[in-house]
Design a protein around this nucleic acid. Structure first.
Lengths: 207, 207
DNA sequence: GTCTATACAGTGATAGAC
DNA sequence: GTCTATCACTGTATAGAC
């Protein structure tokens, strides 16, 4: 399964990042020590420190690693100009639900919030390299819909608030209450996603 | 200013809770040590441990302390039956923005998310004693509006998703990016709040 | 209730041999 | 690149005197 060639930045690093991301998601930032990471990677701490300058460094690597794939998914949707804005928007919303709730970078949001206090650089990078581009892509999509007369001329900032807010909060809630067991009863993704998307499209569609 | 009598659970405890809450909000859970708290309270660690069984115990005390006032505000709105549901709802939304973004318990959400991994009991208490009652109060308000024919028969779960999501995310964002300086440019509370409230009321109002 | 003193496990991080 | 060994430090928590 892991028969990757060493064409990337070094697949040892990649493996460490993969394992660390897993541990960070499971136990939080300060709940994950460099020792535990080294153990899980079957190397010593000293070796770990050979690959990454420090814990902050490693964490940033884990987070930024998830940026690209998340953004690429949105870019692909925008690139497919054969589809109408409404279909694109619905697809984009599906993708946002998928990435923010299921992908590491999305699930790491509360974790990033935690770390941002100690390391403002993490917050800056997260905002500049992920939040802003993601928002920009969505706004492009909306603008296109407006230009084509399919969308109303809405306040994009407010709409962004209404789009991202519920998804991020749902993701955070599910992380917080993961131990509950009846998670899907309290936070049924597909039901909330459908209702949410309908409302957003309803706000956008020109009469 | 602090001329309180000792009629409460003991005002020494109350002071510790106040100071700890402040530190937790500023530096996160694991960024706040019992030593720092003791220092800030001008007592020794040993004395601190005399009042609270441990760090978890103290943290829970800080969080639960904020529940009541937040819930009471909503209860007061519901109690004032002289006002129409629409006015009550708008007032409730104002209150939610105020409490979730400005009050300690609201601002602590990402912090609680952090701690919930290590201490599921914190998550349970947070959900049972704050999230659920708050949601229940809002749903009562909606039900009343429906009964009086002023509101449409909406899906309350989806509406809750749309109401709480943006507010919680906005609060978290402002905590994460507090170091930015241009916070109000990126996250202008009153603008987003107005737009958000208008949409919610639009979804609710019967034609 | 508060203090001094301390136990002791765990932390991030480094030096230097192989 | 990986190892062994060790560093200096902070963490939570406790014992026992006052």
């Amino acid at each position: 399964m892991d028969t990757v060639e060493k064409n990337q930045v070094g697949n040892r690093q990649a493996e460490i990042i993969r394992i660390s991301t897993d541990l960070f998601l499971k136990n939080g930032f300060s709940g994950t020590s460099m020792s535990k990471i080294a153990n899980a990677c079957s190397i010593t701490k000293a070796s770990l420190y050979h690959h990454f300058a420090g814990k902050e460094d490693l964490f940033i690597a884990c987070v930024t690693d998830g940026y690209k794939s998340a953004l690429i998914a949105l870019e692909d949707i925008l690139a497919d100009t054969s589809r109408r804005p409404e279909a694109q928007m619905r697809h984009a919303l599906d993708t946002l639900y998928e990435t923010i709730i299921s992908s590491p970078v999305g699930r790491m949001s509360p974790l990033i919030a935690e770390v941002s206090r100690a390391f403002p650089s993490v917050a800056r990078s997260f905002h500049a390299d992920y939040i802003e581009p993601q928002q920009a892509l969505l706004w492009q999509l909306i603008d296109r819909g407006i230009d084509q007369g399919e969308f109303k001329d809405v306040d994009k900032q407010v709409l962004g608030h209404l789009i991202f807010g519920p998804i991020v909060t749902l993701s955070m809630s599910r992380e917080m209450f993961a131990s509950f067991g009846d998670l899907d009863a309290h936070f049924p993704i597909s039901h909330l996603q459908t209702g949410h998307s309908d409302v957003i499209l309803g706000l956008l569609k020109a009469d």
